[in-house]
Design a binder for these strands. Sequence first.
DNA 1: GTCTATATTCCGATAGAC
DNA 2: GTCTATCGGAATATAGAC
Lengths: 181, 181
Amino acid sequence: MNDTKAEILRIANELIRSVGYNSFSYANISLPLNIKNAAIHYYFPAKADLGVALIRENIDGFKEITESWKMLSYRQQYINYITMHDYFVKKHWVCIVGSLSPSFETLPEPMQKELQTLINLVIAWLTDLLEKGLESKDFSFKEPPRTKACIIHAALLSSLLMNKVLNNDAYKTIQNGLLAL
Amino acid sequence: MNDTKAEILRIANELIRSVGYNSFSYANISLPLNIKNAAIHYYFPAKADLGVALIRENIDGFKEITESWKMLSYRQQYINYITMHDYFVKKHWVCIVGSLSPSFETLPEPMQKELQTLINLVIAWLTDLLEKGLESKDFSFKEPPRTKACIIHAALLSSLLMNKVLNNDAYKTIQNGLLAL
DNA sequence: GTCTATATTCCGATAGAC
DNA sequence: GTCTATCGGAATATAGAC
């Protein structure tokens, strides 16, 4: 992948997290790169192609990072998951799922499919981790693992939204609550 | 409030929950009402005025409904809160906080302020309820009440997002998990 | 109170030169 | 691979008639 394409994806990734998919334009990307907005169409013919690429990046990234955690203890993997968005917090960014979900109906169909894949991937991974950690007594909770996984994922996602809107300790508060598993 | 204004608010409320604030236009409201989009400007000069009115409706509505629950047991009030969005689920709507938060930076400043007011109102009410219910032994949990309130609010908000995107049992799953307080 | 008509701006996208 | 130039459409908003 050449530099321009990578730079487009980097900036689009920031924009989708800060203002959302429907609220950024090719001009928001081309200006900081000092290229014309029409040039972006060479790499991503339609905005939907850029959107799909962004979600795919997240899918691949999640698979890679969780794979790299394989040797760690269940608890350490859980801690890594809960803290993996720490970098976003200072910038008031949200995760891509939280960004895209409210406007799901407005998304092009290929983006909808990719987003569903991403969420299912995360829930499945977290459910599996909680299941194994419960069996090994590393974790202790009373809900079924999938229920617990949904609640944890949901709370973590919203904590980024609250961080953006309230700009207070909500993210840390929720994170600490979730870490006390 | 006359009928047209009320109808505008009703349809805008649906639109903000289904497609989001930045993704609906005055035409989406004027068409079903069989009026011209310019006519809406008479009631709401700018789109931001409509946005503010929508959030205010939610603020007033939350105050009214929680006030009407005052005589109920702490547990029943909690159950009512957790199930208050049930009507939205079939329609794949999200709450107004979940709809507006990801695009917070793009919102006009008056809407930002109202949204912050709404979230703080809900968190304060829920924290107070959990505090009283913990003291009276109606609830049992180990986190500080405000931490628990943030987690519950966050999980509930995201459950509506997951319901929209995945269209599966995530909402019910999370709801049941939260009810087992 | 609602209309027509229009101004302005911006967006995503395409065609074709270089 | 990036450019200029431009199209078609849609959005918010305003002015002024009725």
